[in-house]
Amino acid sequence: MAVDPAALDPAVLLAGPRGRRLCLEWARTWSQNDDERLSSAIFYAAHNLDPGRGVSRVLFSVGTDGSDRDADHGSKPPAPGDVARLLADASLTEPGGPAVMSALAAAVGNARYWQPPDGEDVLAAAPEMRAALARVAHLLAGSPQASWWTTPAGGPARDAEQWSVEFAGTTVDGELVRNAAEILELSRVGRVEEEALAERDWPADPRASFSGPWWSKPPSALTRTTRALAGVGPAGLALVEDALGWEAATVHRIRPPRDTRVYEIDGPDAWAHLCRRYPVRVTAARRQVWYQTTGRIGLWVMPDWAGVAQDVDAVHLTVAGYLATAGRTIQVDGDVASVLAGWDPDQTYWLTDVDHDHSTDQVWHRGESEWARATDA
């Protein structure tokens, strides 16, 4: 049987923290319906492994006298090995329906690059979990719902639809609208000033308790788009890092220029190439936050997006590229490394000006678990 060159390699889902979290989230979703023991074990093991246990993450139980009691002092919680054994013995079904998208959205929504990984991420990264999660990765990689995770911007055809998402309340009336070149140049100047300030005034110790900028994506003021998915709508509605609970959004199509040059970030090597060819130093400004998320001490860089714009019109992050790359240390050269942070999966950043087709405007609202297009009265 011929092998599809675009098929998703299950190993990709185990390579990075977001991919491992996806596998854990799908196992949790499945087990909530089919094996409550596994769901419960995941919950308590993750709680016990969370760096905020007892402080920002606390469990309480109700005693026989009706009083609240700190559940952290109860019976011994399950360890990663216990969860792995339950998962290995589970009769997993083929992934299907909305469960895959729900698990993917949870993996994306729980990403954080400014503090240590949460308990679920620690659990998913435990060596004891690898073989059990590999079962899940194999099932997910072969799922029809994952068939688009390796495809380039909009799909195989460059003229496929791309949709911009604007969440309610994120645009300020009278906000100055700039062209892409201005946005990129302002961002470049700001990055240089930010690094100079950090070198002068911020702590030099990566372990210091200090927060600063953590993202490495292009400027948010640029046009950003994702594809639309049948029955789901634009992927940019559901697949959002650090979301703020938006319940409404307006979406519309954009019209890319002809012969658009799109750089595809399909994995760690593609990100490392960008950082190697267009490096900008960010060690002083990100040494604390990226130490928190990776545990690494060393030199840090990210791409100079104004420089990238000299050679391409847009940069697209595939879902597979996101799952394998985001949130981990990506070696660039020698003692220089980078972190892909703050970039949603399937999102394309346009480094040039594009036409917005507002005749295609649609209003979407978030329900209990998914987004739906508003119907005309």
Score class of each variant (00 low, 15 high):
residue 294 T to G: 11
residue 71 A to P: 05
residue 117 P to E: 04
residue 180 A to W: 02
residue 211 S to Y: 11
residue 360 T to E: 06
residue 83 V to Y: 05
residue 365 H to M: 10
residue 213 P to D: 02
residue 354 V to L: 08
residue 341 A to W: 05
residue 184 L to V: 08
residue 287 R to E: 11
residue 26 W to F: 10
residue 114 W to E: 11
residue 280 V to S: 10
residue 240 V to I: 13
residue 137 A to P: 01
residue 251 V to N: 01
residue 11 A to Y: 03
residue 83 V to N: 06
residue 151 T to M: 15
residue 282 V to C: 15
residue 44 Y to D: 06
residue 32 Q to C: 13
residue 83 V to G: 09
residue 86 L to R: 09
residue 73 H to K: 09
residue 264 E to C: 07
residue 248 A to S: 14
residue 372 A to M: 09
residue 219 P to M: 10
residue 73 H to Y: 15
residue 35 D to S: 12
residue 246 W to P: 03
residue 292 Q to H: 12
residue 284 A to Y: 06
residue 271 W to P: 05
residue 205 D to C: 08
residue 283 T to G: 01
residue 320 A to C: 09
residue 369 S to T: 15
residue 164 S to P: 00
residue 259 D to E: 14
residue 358 H to Y: 13
residue 144 P to V: 10
residue 278 Y to S: 03
residue 191 R to G: 00
residue 282 V to N: 09
residue 49 L to Q: 07
residue 118 D to C: 06
residue 189 V to T: 12
residue 336 V to A: 05
residue 42 I to M: 08
residue 143 S to P: 01
residue 71 A to R: 09
residue 45 A to Q: 02
residue 239 L to N: 02
residue 32 Q to E: 15
residue 251 V to K: 00
residue 59 L to P: 00
residue 125 A to M: 06
residue 327 G to L: 06
residue 111 A to Q: 04
residue 44 Y to G: 00
residue 140 L to Y: 02
residue 289 V to T: 15
residue 223 T to Q: 11
residue 301 V to L: 06
residue 293 T to P: 00
residue 21 R to F: 01
residue 204 A to N: 09
residue 96 G to M: 08
residue 139 L to I: 05
residue 75 S to C: 05
residue 109 G to Q: 05
residue 123 L to K: 05
residue 196 A to E: 14
residue 190 G to D: 12
residue 327 G to K: 01
residue 276 R to H: 13
residue 206 P to N: 07
residue 104 L to W: 10
residue 293 T to S: 15
residue 156 P to V: 10
residue 190 G to I: 08
residue 323 L to H: 06
residue 173 D to S: 14
residue 114 W to I: 01
residue 251 V to E: 05
residue 94 E to T: 13
residue 8 L to Q: 03
residue 71 A to M: 08
residue 98 P to I: 05
residue 91 S to Y: 01
residue 360 T to C: 06
residue 207 R to C: 06
residue 257 P to M: 04
residue 345 P to D: 07
residue 364 W to R: 04
residue 81 G to N: 08
residue 364 W to P: 00
residue 105 A to T: 09
residue 157 A to H: 13
residue 91 S to H: 12
residue 281 R to Y: 02
residue 321 G to R: 00
residue 28 R to F: 11
residue 330 I to K: 00
residue 124 A to N: 05
residue 148 W to C: 04
residue 226 T to G: 01
residue 183 I to Q: 10
residue 340 L to V: 08
residue 291 Y to Q: 11
residue 74 G to H: 07
residue 6 A to Q: 12
residue 157 A to V: 06
residue 287 R to K: 12
residue 95 P to G: 12
residue 212 G to C: 03
residue 80 P to I: 11
residue 364 W to L: 04
residue 144 P to A: 10
residue 163 W to H: 13
residue 169 G to R: 10
residue 192 V to Y: 03
residue 192 V to H: 10
residue 251 V to Q: 02
residue 239 L to D: 02
residue 277 R to I: 08
residue 66 G to T: 07
residue 307 G to V: 07
residue 50 D to E: 08
residue 292 Q to R: 15
residue 76 K to N: 11
residue 305 W to V: 05
residue 38 L to P: 03
residue 312 V to Q: 08
residue 187 S to F: 10
residue 55 V to R: 13
residue 85 R to V: 03
residue 314 A to K: 06
residue 19 G to K: 00
residue 305 W to N: 04
residue 155 G to K: 07
residue 255 R to Q: 13
